[in-house]
């Protein structure tokens, strides 16, 4: 078995005069190492200037998404062994501004999350003496969309997000759907107006890669298509039927 494996890492520092460049690092090739272990090895023993985000190393915090050999992945869940013999190319997630090295700027997502009102909207009174009833069946209606860890892989897989500057992107729309489909929520109509507007669901051309790369099987592509169907239905009923005020 090989002893070492080469990582070609995208390096960029706005402080430096030189532009972005790929730098090669040799790391031990170990069966139980994921890409993130290799990056930490570099950071701790070879080159302390390498910048990247990480935290839980168990695929739940969503920090360590990067592009590995062109595919957006969680680096904590990508074994070196599967990418042997190398070299392995590691880049920041695509379509985001790069702050430095492998660190991207995700302000756009954070702003949009607020814009789509990703929280429960109640019309009822808040009675804290008891819980709202929700059957396991009703729970399963939105559960899948609530599993999003905000890792941004789907954005990096979405060419529309790269081409259309205003597009909110897959995860945010899936999270809006998560609340729409929740039996406790009354905000569907409000969110529909946002989704039908510029930047919303109609930018999506259904490439479908967002769902393919999602590490949590959220299926944002499905969420968006369901939204389109619902949006179209709402539009037709509003305009065609005299009683169609929904």
């Amino acid at each position: 078995m090989q002893q070492q494996i080469t990582l070609e890492i995208f390096r960029y520092n706005p402080d430096d005069k030189e532009g972005p460049a790929y730098k090669k690092y040799e790391v031990p090739f170990r069966k139980d190492w994921v890409i993130l272990d290799a990056l930490n090895h570099i950071k701790d023993r070879i080159d302390g200037t390498l910048s990247f985000r990480w935290s839980c190393r168990m695929g739940i915090c969503g920090s360590c998404g990067m592009k590995v050999n062109g595919n957006p992945v969680l680096t904590c869940a990508s074994f070196l062994e599967k990418l042997a013999p190398g070299p392995i190319r590691i880049e920041p997630l695509e379509y985001f501004p790069v702050i430095r090295d492998l660190v991207i700027n995700m302000d756009d997502f954070m702003d949009n999350l607020k814009k789509v009102r990703s929280w429960i909207i109640h019309e009822k009174d808040d009675n804290l003496d008891e819980e709202y009833l929700q059957t396991p069946d009703q729970l399963s209606d939105y559960k899948q969309y609530s599993m999003c860890i905000n890792c941004m892989l789907c954005y990096s897989a979405c060419p529309v997000y790269g081409l259309e500057p205003g597009f909110m992107g897959p995860a945010v729309i899936a999270l809006a759907q998560r609340y729409n489909m929740d039996s406790r929520d009354d905000g569907n109509k409000l969110r529909m107006d946002i989704m039908n507007a510029e930047g919303g669901i109609w930018h999506c051309t259904f490439v479908g890669d967002c769902s393919a790369v999602c590490p949590k099987n959220v299926d944002p592509a499905g969420a968006i298509q369901r939204y389109k169907l619902e949006g179209a239905r709402a539009w037709w009923t509003r305009w065609l039927l005299p009683w169609g005020k929904e």
């Binding site: 819980e131 009833l133 396991p136 729970l139 939105y142 609340y179």
Partner: peptide, 17 residues
Amino acid sequence: IRLEHWGCPWSREESGK
């Protein structure tokens, strides 16, 4: 319960509780 009202997807019994 407050967290439930904010939307936390707690696992449920068949009755919805």
